[in-house]
Amino acid sequence: MTEVTATHANDNLDTLPDSARRVALLLRERGHAKPVVMLPETGKTSAEAAAGLGCEVAQIAKSILFRRRKDDVPVLVIASGANRVDENKVAERVGEIGRADAKFVREKTGYAIGGVCPIGHAVTPVTLIDADLLALDSLWAAAGHPHAVFNLTPQELVALTGAPVVDVALRDA
């Protein structure tokens, strides 16, 4: 396992990038005591994050942002890093969706692509959680920066987001 550096919410937050510090403070406000971890290499992809953490790709709770076509509302899907998202399943629940470009992601979430946290967005998104995540004991989610992550359980993810748990995974026919 690659060595990672951890900064606990009760430690000196000045060592974290601004966006990760904001997430650490938000997590602390919501009673989440686990640290924000800074990966030495980028965690922009699920595979990169899993390699840096020494965990399975499935344990990466990746945040994928879409744009709802009818009203430009952000739609956040928090999916297992092992899954591809079935956009048709998402659209059945929230309406027709389209891809979100980097500008849309930054404007609506306040985070850069690769660092989108499940919480603390500039504009509250419609959020869905991949049901496959609930089969795991431990997850890692982005903490506001491409190098920042935090550990949580699937139940904590549901509690932090208040989002419904649904089947969003693309399944082979």
Rank of each mutant, 00 (worst) to 15 (best):
H145D: 15
D18Y: 06
L170C: 09
D14G: 11
H8V: 03
A122H: 10
E92P: 00
A33K: 11
K70T: 10
E3L: 09
R106V: 06
S19T: 15
V73T: 13
R30A: 11
P164S: 15
Q155T: 15
K34Y: 06
R28I: 01
K89D: 05
I129H: 01
Q155M: 14
L136W: 03
T5L: 08
I129F: 02
L152P: 09
A148P: 08
G114D: 04
V90W: 09
I119F: 01
C117L: 01
F104C: 11
P164V: 11
A6I: 07
T127D: 03
N10L: 14
V165K: 10
C117I: 01
V149N: 09
L25G: 14
N10W: 14
G95D: 07
G114P: 07
V57R: 13
V126E: 06
W140C: 02
A100C: 11
E41M: 12
L39P: 05
C117F: 00
H121N: 04
D71L: 09
F150Y: 15
N151P: 04
D11Y: 08
N10E: 14
S138W: 02
D11L: 10
A142E: 04
L16S: 04
N12Q: 05
R30Q: 15
M38H: 01
R21C: 00
T109I: 06
D172V: 13
A61E: 06
K62G: 02
R171Q: 14
V75Q: 01
E87N: 06
K34C: 01
N12C: 07
A148R: 12
L76K: 08
L133Y: 04
A20T: 06
S63M: 03
V123N: 02
P154T: 10
L139N: 10
A91Y: 08
A20C: 11
N83H: 15
N83T: 08
A142S: 15
G114Q: 03
P74G: 08
A50C: 09
V123E: 15
V94T: 10
A82P: 02
A49L: 03
N83Q: 13
V149W: 06
K62T: 08
N12P: 02
D101S: 07
L26P: 12
V36L: 06
Y111F: 15
V36Y: 07
I129E: 00
L128P: 06
H121S: 04
I78H: 09
K89G: 07
T42A: 13
A131M: 06
V126G: 00
V166G: 07
L134P: 00
A169L: 05
A169H: 14
I119Q: 01
A159D: 15
R68N: 08
R106L: 14
E41V: 12
C55P: 00
R67Y: 00
S63A: 12
D14E: 14
A159I: 09
R93E: 14
L13A: 11
G43E: 08
V57F: 00
Q59N: 03
